[in-house]
Design a binder for these strands. Structure first.
Lengths: 341, 341
DNA sequence: TTGAAAGCGCTAACAC
DNA sequence: GTGTTAGCGCTTTCAA
């Protein structure tokens, strides 16, 4: 049984009072240099570690922030988490990371877990299946600071940070058009997600700007967010067997991009015929075959921004009523091939 | 300021004592059905959540386990974490995940963080740079349950689980030999890691079994574990310009595999000439170009096994002195190409 | 069946 | 400069 040294133990051993020991250890004033030295030396010797649970109970603070993301194995989210960590650690906070695997049940459980763990605040990117936000709303109403990132929602008023999904989708679609493609399909992410609609709008705007009529049959939705490979393959298959099949596909998410590439490869499509572009933060997307042009989000920066917002909320003495939604730019990485004009 | 409902609040509101409320809520005996119903109903109404920090202080248990891995963005580790979560949640534990980015400084900080957070136990896969285990040893000596997985160490006696790295490397090397390759290079991971040596031994054994002399110049070590791309490129470049250049490369880790493929592609090598195989748990390794045969570890199962071992340690009333090191099988996925005989 | 009181480890207000 | 005490939220004797 793990039984750490307590302040009381030290006080007893040194024939002092617990409060004196506490003062010495927490480096406050009102203590003589000698006593302090005796105490700190002894504390080091017995490897004293302050018990953060007791501290948490005292201060009603846990100095931890909860992170809820759909998937750790997704480069975008792991990059964002790295960004969060960088700032959190600097500020003496640590992070409790959980993943939902895009399940709203798991999300509910995880958020409850974190709230019960008394995290001082929550960073969350919504899972694709969630449509009931009442639980989050309740926590937020109870005063738990929450910041949304990437997959944000309108139902709760707080700080938010996301990418310029509209602009990213627009730029990519525009370049597909400029490279000579006219029948551009869109493989969209789960419809509940904020990012899905923004990307759809960017795609539509580019079509409109270049006088290409929008054709609903060229838009397919992956309700499972790419977690269900078959869903993606079915969509792709349908396109490939259309009389006027698409000459380009724009893909609304990282995971769907992968599934789409896998499907195209399996279906033996001709890479010259259909050009592919999509959102992706994978660090090996450039090694994939068939190749794909990609829109990259500033994931690390998004994580940093989100946690900075959260710390502002946590540290604020008075309730904040003015909230900001920050939009980060995206970068387009274009893969040239022979057919491009 | 987030101010949750306490037992005291309920007691006050219902004109009862805190202890009665506690009994009703914790479902113990010695309480009348009616009082219990009144209390639980009211608790539900005001959305009472038991404060786990206070509970932790009382029980000296946090019901959380710490996980320390080198990198979340690595498929192997995110799969292992998913395995850990599956069992941990079932048992009422939750997980605090941290990553070290393969830095021993970060590792030290994270482990200290977790120990201070009073995790009930620790699951750790060592970062590649670590050679001083004294802090872990100290924690372990103090009674903190620790289980090592994947990248294990000999210096601390406890439960461990890892893959059959020897066997995996042997099988892969053997198949390279059987497919007609004779000059098989090895791109090895950081030398401090347990897995590095085991994979080296498997490689050597396969060469020996097929009477192929071991040539030291065909083994290169990535001291940075593939985090430094240049290190990998330099190694590959040297091989490509050797008079008798290798006709196959076996790679000792996921991340190095990626860097190696990137380097080969950049250096415009001929995929017919050099066959590549390596350890990888990436779910898109089959889409990479140039293609690679890969040894896959049972990551999910490893996570499950590790946490089961840890829970055994945590729940044990008496100190455990008999420890087991479990070895999981690997799976070889072979990519055929034309030149294979 | 219920209430009062003590205590988990820590800190801070208040004595001395 | 140091000790005493109370209290954070909860459970658990012990007493009523």
């Amino acid at each position: 049984m793990y039984k750490p040294v307590t302040i009381k133990d030290i006080a007893l051993a040194l024939n002092l009072s617990p409060s004196t020991v506490s003062r010495a250890l927490s480096d406050t004033y009102g203590i003589s240099a000698e006593t302090k030295k005796i105490i700190t030396d002894y504390a080091k010797k017995v490897n004293y570690q302050t018990n953060p649970i007791a501290l948490g109970l005292k201060n009603m603070r846990s100095y931890s922030i909860g992170i809820v993301v759909p998937e750790l194995a997704n480069s975008f989210f792991s990059q964002a988490i790295a960004g969060v960590e960088s700032i959190a650690y600097e500020n003496g906070y640590h992070t409790i990371i959980t993943q939902t695997h895009d399940s709203s049940e798991r999300e509910l459980i995880n958020v409850k877990h974190l709230a019960q763990r008394s995290v001082d605040g929550l960073l969350i990117s919504m899972s694709s299946g969630t449509s009931d936000y009442s639980f989050l709303k309740q926590l937020h109403d109870n005063g738990l600071p929450i910041v949304f990132f990437d997959r944000i929602i309108n139902e709760i008023e707080t700080f938010k940070v996301t990418s310029n999904n509209f602009g990213g989708a627009f730029k990519a679609t525009e370049l597909l058009i400029k490279s000579g493609r006219k029948k551009i399909a869109l493989l969209a992410n789960a419809p509940q997600l904020s990012i899905t609609n923004e990307r759809l709008l960017g795609y539509k705007k580019a079509l409109a700007d270049y006088q290409i009529p929008f054709r609903p049959q060229l838009v397919k939705t992956c309700y499972k967010g790419g977690n269900d490979y078959q869903e993606v393959e079915d969509a792709v298959k349908e396109w490939l067997f259309m009389p006027e099949k698409p000459d380009a596909i724009f893909i609304g998410s990282d995971r769907i991009s992968i599934s789409c590439i896998r499907a195209l490869k399996k279906l033996n499509f001709d890479p010259q015929e259909i050009k592919i572009a999509g959102f992706s933060n994978s660090d090996i997307v450039d090694l994939l075959q068939p190749s794909i042009s990609y829109v990259r989000q500033k994931a690390f920066e998004m994580g940093r921004t989100a946690v900075e917002m959260l710390l502002k909320l946590i540290k604020s003495k008075y309730p904040i009523t003015e909230f900001e939604t920050k939009i980060l730019d995206t970068e387009l990485h274009w893969m040239n091939d022979q057919k491009d004009s």
